[in-house]
């Protein structure tokens, strides 16, 4: 098997995540899709690390995880706050920018 198959998998997962972000309306699911995209990127990092024979890719992946954790914490807090005031977790309900 070719190592590049991991990269194909990464690209596929990333694309699926992107579609999810754009299509789904539940804010929590949107967040999950973002996590999927980040994980796909991590897979690519790890694969490149292996291909290049050094650990820099893994360190980058590690940092990505930390950033993802931060993002989840803050994002979910925002969702909770919005839910508290609007009783809804749909991203379409928060379209006040237009009105």
């Amino acid at each position: 098997m070719d190592i590049s198959n991991y990269l194909y998998l990464s690209a596929l997962l990333f694309t699926i995540g992107a579609v999810g972000v754009v299509v789904r309306r539940n804010a929590i699911v949107v967040f999950m899709c973002i996590e999927l995209m980040l994980n796909a990127a991590n897979l690519a990092f790890v694969t490149f690390s292996r291909i290049n024979g050094n650990l820099d890719g893994q360190v980058a992946s590690f940092f990505t995880m930390v950033v993802a954790a931060c993002e989840v914490v803050v994002g979910l807090a925002i969702i909770v706050t919005i839910y508290r005031s609007r009783r809804s977790a749909s991203v379409d309900d928060a379209s006040l920018l237009k009105r």
């Binding site: 972000v21 754009v22 991203v91 379409d92 379209s95």
Partner: peptide, 17 residues
């Protein structure tokens, strides 16, 4: 384009990518 829906903006971002 400015319809206020965050998902539309996300789509535009995807198109940019």
């Amino acid at each position: 384009i400015q319809n206020g829906y965050v998902r539309s903006y996300a789509l535009i971002m995807v198109l940019g990518a």
